[in-house]
């Protein structure tokens, strides 16, 4: 009996393929793409100012709202945070990625990669929480800064308009540190992958031809590692753009995109505005992905 069924399917590879593909495709297309589509539709609805009910008619009114000065400022603020986090993550990630790719034995490499991927997969929320403890006014970082007699510079930093705040745990500087920390592993892995593909013979050739180590680094290694940096930046940029946990935990009253979406749909009950606001990161990321593909980042993923 089983043999007959087996033969039946063996002769019809197309049918088998369809049987394999249907469940995952059905799920992803209906549930996931369907939801994204409903998000898009909702962004073209609007909300009745008096009743607070969603008016299910096509309008661009809601989109006009996201370009008002307050929301434009939110986009600028979030975009620049994502940009600086990405740049600093790339700078911090590079030495470790370079060390793993080019200076560690096979055994050490396995362990170092595990050491990088454990924070990547482990609880994002708990990692944010750790910084709540560290950055607290009475916490370990303040104690350390006090020990080094650096209170003056810290107070000066916190007094700066725009990035300062009452303490590190309630300021854009604090958020910046936490974002850099949280997304760092996402930058290390792609850079390491890209560097791994640079053949050792290329570096030897460069030095045989008289390049100093610094020149080899600048003209051979760095350009070849660049696609990895771009690949990593997709994650650091996208994740910062959509996050609302860090701003809610460490931020002040100045909103970030994720936070705005969260409050528009939650306390505000304005689903259309939340949906239109979410389209911002979606469009930014699609453009970003297209540019990244041009720069060869997908090969480094």
């Amino acid at each position: 009996m089983l043999n007959r069924i087996s033969t039946f399917f063996y002769r019809r590879p197309g049918l088998v393929l369809a049987l394999f593909l249907t469940p995952p495709l059905l799920y992803m297309v209906v549930v996931y793409l369907g939801s994204l589509f409903s998000l898009l539709i909702n962004s073209f609805f609007s909300i009745d100012d008096f009743t607070g009910m969603v008016i299910r008619e096509f309008t661009l009114k809601t989109y006009a709202q996201i370009f008002n000065p307050a929301n434009r400022e939110i986009f600028m603020r979030t975009g620049s945070m994502a940009f600086f986090v990405t740049v600093v993550d790339a700078l911090i990630a590079f030495p470790l990625a370079y060390y793993i790719a080019k200076f560690s034995s096979r055994r050490l490499k396995t362990w170092l990669l595990i050491a990088v991927t454990i924070p990547l997969w482990s609880s994002y929320l708990v990692r944010v929480y750790a910084w709540k403890l560290i950055l607290a006014k009475e916490g370990i970082l303040s104690w350390f800064i006090n020990l080094l007699h650096l209170n003056g510079p810290l107070d000066w930093l916190l007094s700066l308009p725009g990035i300062g705040g009452s303490s590190l745990s309630l300021s854009p500087i604090g958020m910046f540190i936490v974002f850099v920390y949280i997304w760092l592993p996402y930058m290390i892995i792609p850079i390491q992958t890209a560097l791994e593909r640079v053949p050792g013979s290329l570096l030897e050739a460069s030095s045989d031809l008289g390049a100093k180590p610094y020149q080899t680094f600048r003209t051979v290694i760095l350009p070849l590692a660049f696609p990895g940096v771009v690949a990593g930046s997709i994650f650091t940029f996208s994740l910062t753009l959509g996050d609302f946990i860090v701003p809610l935990t460490l931020g002040n009253s100045k909103f970030f995109i994720g936070q705005a979406v969260y409050s528009y749909q939650g306390t505000g009950g304005n689903i259309p505005l939340a949906a239109a606001m979410t389209m911002g990161p979606v469009v930014i990321m699609v453009v970003y992905l297209l540019i990244a593909r041009k720069l060869g980042a997908f090969d480094a993923l």
Binding site: L39, G258, V282
Partner: peptide
Amino acid sequence: ALPGIVTGIALRTA
């Protein structure tokens, strides 16, 4: 690849 909030709010509207 998309920010988590996109998936979240998309599912919520649907």
